[in-house]
């Protein structure tokens, strides 16, 4: 039986890596501090494995093939793609995988939990995974199970399905045969736009959505979140707001209100920071 020892909902905005290297601009000082706090909390949780729920941004998965949910099952995992090194200065990274936990989530002979998962035995992670790890666990020494969710190329899984995925992972953690400590990281955005008319406006593209989203996390109101998080509502808040769905999976894994709901307002809108400590 494994144990859930912490959940961390964090941003992955790749421009942060360059901007927070060296002298940090005033508005990003609290972002760096929030990452530092999450890093200490993760360290204190002493996890043996990390499940990371995030959305590949047209790197490993793209319009040539786009799985709804894909589990990375491998001994060794690579991170960062050529164009992310070029565009964002992100380093190429390597980390251990946790194929046994991946198998519990995925299934062995048959797929597990009523999910028709895709799998990859050669996962290559993009900034949605690498940026959180660079701040939360820069040594990248804890074995990882990466879970890709399609929040970028419709048709997407429904919000309910993101919650169901969380319930599945929650059950898997309880039933996994090893006595290991499992922490979960999810990355994504609150209201956010990229590539549309409102990108880089210097503020949230929908403060009302952000306030509501913070309440869902802080009060564990997943039914309300599922009802509200339709494709139209999320994209009205900015096209990448769809990535908020990853936090529904995290909240469902935790199964209770977040201990800390502390989004940081900065040039990228409200950067999400939601934390669950060990139960």
């Amino acid at each position: 039986m494994a144990e859930f020892v912490g959940g961390f909902g964090v941003p992955h905005t790749p421009l942060l890596w360059h901007l927070m290297d060296g002298e940090v601009p005033d508005d990003l000082v609290p972002v760096k501090a929030a990452f530092r706090r999450s890093r200490a909390q993760l360290e204190a949780a002493r996890p043996d494995a990390l499940v990371i729920v995030a959305s590949d941004h047209f790197h490993q998965y793209h319009h040539g093939v786009m799985p709804a949910f894909a589990i990375g099952k491998a001994d060794h995992i690579q991170g960062t793609h050529d164009n992310e090194e070029r565009s964002f200065g992100l380093p190429a990274v390597e980390m251990p995988g946790h194929p046994r936990l991946a198998e519990s989530i995925l299934g062995r002979e048959q797929l597990s939990g009523g999910f028709d998962f895709t799998f990859s035995n050669a996962p290559v992670l993009d900034h949605a995974y690498v940026v959180p790890l660079l701040y939360l666990r820069p040594d990248m020494d804890i074995p990882v199970v990466p879970i890709h969710t399609n929040t970028n190329a419709p048709p997407l899984p429904s919000a309910q399905r993101f919650v169901d995925l969380g319930h599945h992972i929650r059950a898997v953690i309880r039933e996994h045969p090893e006595r290991i400590r499992v922490a979960v990281i999810a990355s994504g955005h609150m209201a956010y736009e990229l590539g549309g008319p409102n990108q880089f406006s210097g503020r949230s593209t929908d403060p009302e959505f952000d306030a509501e989203a913070a309440r869902w996390m802080g009060q564990s109101r997943l039914d309300a979140a599922v009802e509200a998080c339709t494709f139209d509502r999320l994209t009205a808040a900015g096209n990448l707001t769809l990535q908020f769905l990853n936090f529904l999976t995290l909240a469902a894994i935790a199964g209770r209100p977040a201990d800390e709901v502390a989004p940081v307002e900065c040039r990228f809108g409200n950067e999400p920071f939601f934390t669950w400590e060990a139960s």
């Binding site: 070029r86 565009s87 190329a153 990229l194 590539g195 990108q199 096209n239």
Partner: peptide, 27 residues
């Protein structure tokens, strides 16, 4: 797709000497 489009616009602009503020304004 807006995300993919902006990434490529940005990548091509770098080679064409456009500054980021000018690129964002133009985009």
């Amino acid at each position: 797709h807006p995300f993919l489009l902006f990434q490529v616009v940005r990548s091509l602009a770098v080679g064409r000497g456009l500054s980021m503020p000018d690129l964002l304004r133009q985009y």
